[in-house]
């Protein structure tokens, strides 16, 4: 009687699934290594963790924001580089770096001994902090670094997702994650959508609904919280959505633990 159901379950158990990426394997290894009482670096994770700290520091100085501390919609909204191409700024690290640098960590020779601040790679990327520091949820981002006018030629990527144009801070408080961002200063945005992404950032819009962690209908909001009891490292982006449900602006990728 239950044979068909058993077969269905067995099929689910045999379904081909892709392997976990080497960068994600290293991410988990870093988490294990950072556990209290487990401070001594697991050799194969240490070098990758050090690289991740550099990424966090780099992103912290590369964010783009206007001097008034408000978000600005990307203008024109649909003709800038997608997150898969580095935004053309004067800094050396950008959202695009998040795509390429972690991949390089998988090629780091195992066995290198490196000391990494516990929690460093997975802490907030609130701008102005220096790799792994945290700030109270109500603290606004600190003063921005400068960016120069775009000089790189436009990419040929599909003009769907604008380049990241502001930063979001994230802080863990117990089982919850608190996301904060500067006040929205544009006129096209109507809502915020917090999306769970990969390190490469949002690639498609509309996004897979399972990736949406929170919709914030109040465009005047500057913070939101979600329940996330597990402390697995996760990447997030905040999307400013217009009345036509298109992306008006998008934040840099931020990582939580």
């Amino acid at each position: 009687m239950n044979d068909d159901l058993e077969r269905r379950l067995e099929q689910a158990g045999r379904r081909a699934v892709p392997l976990l990426g080497a960068d994600r394997v290293d991410d988990i290894a870093r988490r294990l290594d950072a556990r209290p009482g487990h401070r001594r670096a697991i050799p194969w994770a240490a070098a990758a963790a050090a690289a991740a700290v550099l990424i966090v520091v780099g992103v912290a100085v590369a964010f783009r924001r206007d001097g008034g501390g408000t978000l600005q919609p990307v203008s024109p909204p649909m003709d800038t580089a997608t997150p898969t191409s580095p935004p053309p700024t004067s800094t050396t690290t950008s959202a695009g770096s998040l795509v390429t640098v972690p991949a390089a960590t998988t090629a780091v020779p195992q066995g290198q001994a490196t000391t990494v601040p516990p929690g460093g790679p997975t802490s907030t990327t609130q701008p102005g902090t220096s790799g792994g520091g945290t700030q109270p949820a109500t603290t606004p981002p600190t003063a921005p670094t400068t960016t120069s006018p775009p000089t790189a030629p436009p990419t040929t990527a599909p003009p769907v997702i604008p380049a990241p144009s502001f930063t979001v801070g994230v802080q863990r408080i117990g089982d919850r994650l608190v996301f904060t961002w500067p006040p929205y200063g544009g006129s096209d945005g109507t809502q915020f959508v917090l999306v769970r992404v990969t390190a490469a950032g949002l690639q498609h819009w509309p996004v897979d609904p399972t990736r949406v962690a929170r919709v914030v209908p109040d465009i005047g909001a500057t913070r939101t919280t979600i329940d996330k009891p597990d402390t697995t490292r996760a990447a997030w982006q905040l999307v400013v959505v217009g009345a036509d449900r298109q992306v008006v602006a998008i934040s840099q990728v931020v990582f939580s633990n």
Partner: peptide, 8 residues
């Protein structure tokens, strides 16, 4: 994404 979380 869930699978990664659960693995970790």
């Amino acid at each position: 994404a869930d699978a990664e979380d659960i693995t970790a």
